Amino acid sequence: MTVSSAAPASAHDAGATTPGESGIGKAEIGDFTPHMVTLRWTEEDGWTTPRLGPHENLSLSPATAVLNYGQSIIEGLKAHRQPDGSFSVFRPRDHARRFQGSARRLSMPELPVALFVDALDRLVEANTDVVPDRPGYSLYLRPYMFASEANVVPRPAREYTVVVISFLIGSYFGDSPDGVSAWVCRDYARAFPGGTGSAKTPGNYAPTMPAQLAAGQAGCQQVVWLDAVERRWVEEMGSANLFFVRGSGEDLTVVTPPLNGTFLPGITRDSVIAVARELGYRVSEEPVAVEDWRADCESGLVTETFGCGTAAVVAAVGRVRDGDHEWQVGDGTTGPVTSAVKERLLAHHHGRTPDVHGWRHPVRTGVRR
């Protein structure tokens, strides 16, 4: 496998400029940064050292194993500017361990945690200068691994490549107080018991696109996925884990579906559970039936619903459509619990609260090139 030189485009628009081309020297939302990190594993030699280089195109053999058999995994996490101007990566070791879990599920080599973190450090250090020092801006980091051996025999590959790229990201759902609209998918299932639902692999995403198109045609922004067996239990929304605020006062409970192997164990989900408890809320992991969600919203028992994920952070759900039925969550806007959880999580991201959980990994600058 070789790489060929090309200027970084945009994560959302191929016509975006490379940072610095406009003379500003800073990236805009969606722009890829000028660098990437690569490393390789072979059956004979194991892992190489992460190498920092320019953001370049990949050149692959038409027989590359990933193109034939789909051995590929991804991760997504962020680096945030801190009050002193430095950068910190949020929970990189937890993402590294999830990356390892995804690799195991697809019979791929497990990247050591130290190498995963080293690769992130090298990339963030090289790209801090292009991130504007403005609220809401973060560096989204996308590590991925794929089977890079030229081979068309259906077996685990004997060579793999890891690439880490980054781009500038703001608020995924914008800053409007209105909640997003969600469409309950009845025609497709995202994952099945015993499948790859708990692994972060591209093969989980492509089959969801018809449902996303259908949601748009129904006037909704996101898809709510139900379990594949009974088509009754709420699992997740798009690529976000879901939370429900049930009751009020001393009876208020923040509820989220339990992990069952068919949807992703979100690092943000785990962070939200911890943050909600920090704020004094009771948290319960229990199954949520879609019909109960509707009935509890209509009765006023459920006053808020929100999704969370690396890109989305925390976003309220304001309206839900399920076939011919449609209901509103609370008053359709971001509620007080959702707001409090989001603000506390952002405070952890950006170093505005003590790091009692050890979540922030500071990136040292000027150490390596």
Rank of each mutant, 00 (worst) to 15 (best):
F192Q: 09
T353Q: 04
T262K: 01
T253D: 06
L345T: 02
D187L: 11
T365D: 15
P62F: 04
S248E: 07
V223Q: 04
P8G: 12
V37R: 01
I267R: 00
R246D: 05
P354G: 10
R51T: 15
N204P: 03
A274C: 15
A191W: 04
D270R: 15
E343K: 14
G23P: 13
G46D: 11
R81K: 12
Y205Q: 06
P265L: 10
A191E: 03
I73V: 12
E149H: 08
E159Q: 06
P19A: 00
P154F: 03
S86F: 12
V163S: 01
L60M: 15
Q100E: 08
R319Q: 10
S248I: 05
G318I: 00
V367W: 08
T303E: 06
L58A: 12
V272C: 11
V130I: 10
G238L: 05
M1T: 07
F173T: 15
R155T: 11
G307V: 00
Q217S: 13
P210I: 06
R319W: 03
P210L: 03
T38L: 13
P8K: 06
S166V: 05
M237L: 13
A182W: 08
A316S: 11
R344Q: 10
G366N: 09
G332D: 08
G335F: 09
V288M: 06
S284A: 13
G366Q: 07
P62D: 08
L259D: 07
A11R: 09
Y144K: 10
P354I: 05
V245W: 00
R294A: 12
V224K: 00
R364L: 15
R360P: 00
D296K: 06
T64I: 10
R282M: 13
G307R: 05
L52W: 09
E235T: 11
R155S: 14
L60R: 11
Y144I: 09
E21M: 14
F244W: 07
P156E: 01
L60Y: 08
S171M: 15
M1W: 09
V290Y: 00
V184L: 03
W47E: 04
V317F: 08
A214N: 06
